[in-house]
């Protein structure tokens, strides 16, 4: 089990009190009904295609994960040892629910699944990811994405 409340005291306090990015306002936009939205996933689990570059310490870069990548070709090179990987070993959807997303699209709950999805390695200063985000936004616009699910680990 890796729950924050089970971390030893000093680490738990450090983790919970970690400085977070502060924003003056919380942007809030409305959009089309969910059943018309094309959804993309962004994971911070350090996921990528087998054979793609592994993630490095403090990196703010990202990897592209195509919609139809076979489950067995998705691997994880997150630098942290402090979260569970057994779940992902058995079933990638526990962290990156691409198959569940396709099912929701087939059932008409969402409009569709984006062609491309993305992963960062989350143990990084948020500022370092900012340039990558601009790139992803451009790619998502081209992919007609209008809903994004951020999936942490």
């Amino acid at each position: 089990m890796v729950r924050v409340d089970e971390f030893p005291d000093e680490f738990r306090e450090d983790y919970l009190n970690r400085e977070m990015p502060a924003f003056d306002e919380s942007p809030f936009v409305l959009g089309p009904p969910l059943a018309e939205r094309r959804v993309s996933l962004i994971s911070t689990a350090g996921l990528h295609r087998k054979g793609d570059r592994p993630f490095t310490e403090e990196s703010g870069d990202f990897r592209i994960i195509p919609k139809d990548l076979p489950d067995e070709d998705l691997v994880m090179t997150h630098v942290s040892s402090n979260f569970d990987r057994i779940g992902f070993m058995k079933d990638a959807d526990v962290a990156f629910p691409i198959n569940r997303l396709k099912e929701l699209a087939a059932d008409g709950v969402i409009g569709g699944v984006a062609e491309y999805h993305y992963s960062f390695m989350g143990a990084t200063e948020p500022d370092k990811m900012a340039p990558s985000v601009a790139e992803i936004v451009a790619a998502m616009k081209a992919d007609k994405v209008d809903a994004v699910m951020l999936c942490p680990v």
Binding site: R3, N82, M89, D93, V94, R100
Partner: peptide
């Protein structure tokens, strides 16, 4: 658990 944002492996209905 950290590492399992959609709950549990091989539990598609729950996920």
């Amino acid at each position: 658990e950290l590492g399992r944002p959609f709950g549990a492996p091989n539990e598609p209905d729950f996920q």
